[in-house]
Simulated scan of single mutants.
Amino acid sequence: MKIGFIGSGIMGRPMAENLLRAGHQLYVYGRRFDRIEPMLVMGALGKGTPAEVAAESDITFTVVSDTTDVEQIILGDRGIVHGARPGHTVIDMSTVSPAATRRIAAALAERGIHMLDAPVSGGETGAREGTLSIMVGGEAPIFEKIRPLFETLGKSIVHVGGHGAGQVVKCCNQIVVGLTFEGVAEAILLARRNGVDPVKMREALLGGFAGSRILEVHGQRMLDSNYKPGFKVKLHHKDMAIVMDNAQETATPLPGAALIAQQMNALMGAGDSELDSSALMRALERLTADSR
């Protein structure tokens, strides 16, 4: 299958590499050659614009940082829309605004181009291992057509509704992830302040209802102060801004999400944008002068 792929960052590159390993021909575009070079070595073919990628492909994936980038890559002057033929499918796996996703899908539909919004959860490890959770919005028949490709990229693949629904579910995911980070960090801090070994505390909690993948993986990161990025603060900060914008659009009270948005603001202001988002622990430590 001829596939276009635009996005060569911490998530996009391993996803593209998994598609290449599965035997698909990929056409790729990147603003920096060094970011797409590993894919070219594996057999992908480079193109000069998103439009040129789409002209060679039946399906084009996009995995970029923010809403503005997605709009430019798909609808911009050199965007996918100018190269794609009717029947082409655009699959945006970025995390962006649900409202913008619906606008983009409508603009593509006017030209006979299909779209799925398919944001992911699972971080760099999930992208590399092909075990991502993929939440998909768009038309069900198009989803079923693309499902085999999703199965190359992820383990949990759920069609959640129409255009934009995937992005709404990703907002929900980021609320749960962020609040769980906060809970784990607060538990570690409280244990320390009471003279209780936080390592033993975590071990005890892992055996009960408080156990979670975040407590297991990111709880250990917090104990070790190891914030080498898997999912960067700056991206979680961006995602929480999307959550809060949607909350305002829909008049939805999200006090817990607002707290996480402010914690991410604090990390950004402290210069921690490139750290893993489990560095939320640092924001709490700074409040108590309890830095480790």
Rank of each mutant, 00 (worst) to 15 (best):
V184I: 12
P141D: 10
V199F: 11
G178R: 00
G162N: 05
L205Y: 09
L189A: 14
P141R: 12
L179M: 10
T180F: 06
L179R: 01
L153F: 06
P198Y: 13
T180D: 03
Q167C: 00
A165S: 12
G183N: 03
R193C: 14
A185V: 06
G162D: 08
V176N: 01
Q167R: 04
K170G: 00
F181W: 06
L149D: 06
G161E: 04
L190R: 10
L149P: 06
A187S: 15
G164C: 06
K145D: 11
L206I: 07
P148Y: 07
V196W: 12
G162Q: 09
E203W: 10
A185Q: 04
I157A: 02
G154I: 08
E144P: 12
I188M: 05
R147Y: 10
L179C: 09
N173I: 00
C172L: 09
P141Q: 10
A191G: 15
A165D: 05
Q167M: 04
F150H: 11
T152S: 07
K200L: 10
I188L: 14
V199M: 10
L179K: 05
K170S: 02
K145H: 14
V158N: 06
I142F: 13
L190P: 11
H159E: 06
P148T: 02
H159M: 10
P148V: 02
L190M: 15
N194T: 14
A165K: 06
R147I: 05
T180V: 03
L190F: 14
L190Q: 15
G178I: 03
H163N: 08
I157T: 06
R147W: 08
G154E: 01
G154F: 03
T180P: 05
C172N: 10
E144C: 12
A204E: 13
G161K: 09
K155E: 14
E151A: 03
L206W: 09
Q174L: 00
C171W: 00
P198G: 14
V176T: 06
G154Q: 07
L205I: 12
G164N: 04
V168W: 04
L206C: 11
L149R: 07
V160L: 07
I188P: 05
Q174N: 07
V168D: 00
V184G: 02
V160S: 04
R147E: 10
E186T: 07
A204Y: 11
Q174I: 00
E186W: 05
V196L: 14
L190H: 08
F143G: 02
